[in-house]
Design a protein around this nucleic acid. Structure first.
Lengths: 225, 225
DNA sequence: ACCTGAACACCGTTCAAGT
DNA sequence: ACCTGAACACCGTTCAAGT
């Protein structure tokens, strides 16, 4: 005799690694990496907590899977664009993805094997530089500079306690009031005359730094030819 | 009657916030952020674990204190150097500090109040740009670009499972063997013809990207005058 | 003012047992 | 082949009690 259908709203779907990783990403998106525990993940999947281990070796394996799935959301550089347009679009998409999943900057902490989405992304980026006229060494430099900048920018952005211009203004005003202007004159000036200007948004800095790097890479490309 | 001196090698020194934070940094340097637990920190300080809470509000407070102490290790930009030299030296020092304390890229995760060492460092960097002829907006762009790059580079560096050229070569060879060259031709090419070249060290990329950004900032400076 | 010990509400992970 | 329940060795943090 089969057990009677439990009166859960959720139908019992068979678990697999992809569903586990997807639910883990949803938990981390909602509450950060701290909110992601194996027990809560089990709950979310309507399964006893420890069943997750049938689909994932351990938490590190789970985090790597999450990082790779997130990498899969990044738009690959297009073959039909010139290198600069292609890299620019891909960098903006990368940044968007990290804004959507801020925990992802931190998830792949230690050096473990990258997943297939990550490998494909890296391969296409390097290929875009190579086909755009970069030497192998120059492509390595370019790749390192661009992705370091994107990661670092996302980290700084994440650490800011505000996002909208209104929040920013409110926070900056408080900060400025606490800040002894005599001790930190330049910080005070920057806050008063720049951050507190209407419409200021830290995220606007992203494209400025990115274009600065892309300009530099264009010179490097020519030198490397 | 005073209790007899316990036969510990460590003399009983009075605890304070600085000693607590110093011991916490030593633990994190040795074993990463995972190795830093309040209980182990108590052990290290020859004190019952929970006494730490007399000097630190909670673990987040501790991590912020650690981050600020590490920021204090960064050489401030010198007044006697021109802006580019000063920022370059300070950036190299920042990078050195993050290599010494790799956990620090991740420690100040959420947006909390920066400490005095952090504020002083930021103030001096912005001041260096301002005195070097950057407009307020340009100084903000410059600061964001440089520090994003430094943070992001340190994160990428940390995630690599090798450091010495020998380790790198060994790892790259294994990676290359696993890597289906047909799926990832450009990654395979880069690994074979660049990473496996004798003397390759990822950390050498740091100055290349940094100088590229400094070149770009020099143009921005002139435009902003 | 600082330190202690017990306790609470959690963690990740293992393992024998079930189906 | 997958899921469960109990258990183990940990966590961060609170709090009354000591000195």
């Amino acid at each position: 005799m089969t057990p009677p259908r439990k009166s859960t709203s959720e139908p019992r779907v068979r678990l697999n690694k992809e569903r586990v990783i997807g639910a883990a990403i949803a938990l981390a998106d909602a509450g950060g990496l701290d909110a992601l525990t194996m027990r809560r993940l089990g709950d979310e999947l309507n399964v006893e907590a420890m069943s997750v281990y049938n689909h994932v070796a351990n938490k590190e394996d789970l985090l790597n899977g999450m990082a790779d799935m997130v990498f899969g959301e990044i738009k690959l550089p297009s073959h039909s664009d010139d290198w600069r347009t292609a890299i620019r679009k891909r960098s903006i998409s990368f940044h968007d993805v990290l804004v959507r999943h801020p925990w992802a900057t931190t998830a792949r902490d230690s050096g473990t094997n990258p997943g297939t989405a990550t490998l494909r992304n890296h391969d296409r980026v390097i290929g875009t530089f190579r086909n755009g006229g970069f030497s192998i060494a120059a492509a390595a430099h370019a790749f390192s500079a661009v992705d370091s900048y994107i990661y670092g920018f996302a980290m700084q952005e994440k650490s800011l306690p505000f996002t909208t211009p209104e929040e920013t203004a409110a926070m900056a005003a408080i900060l400025l009031a606490q800040l002894p202007a005599s001790d930190y004159p330049y910080l005070a000036e920057l806050t008063a005359d720049h951050v507190l200007k209407p419409g200021y948004r830290y995220s606007d800095e992203f494209l400025i730094g990115l274009d600065l790097i892309l300009d530099g890479l264009d010179s490097m490309r020519i030198e490397s030819q």
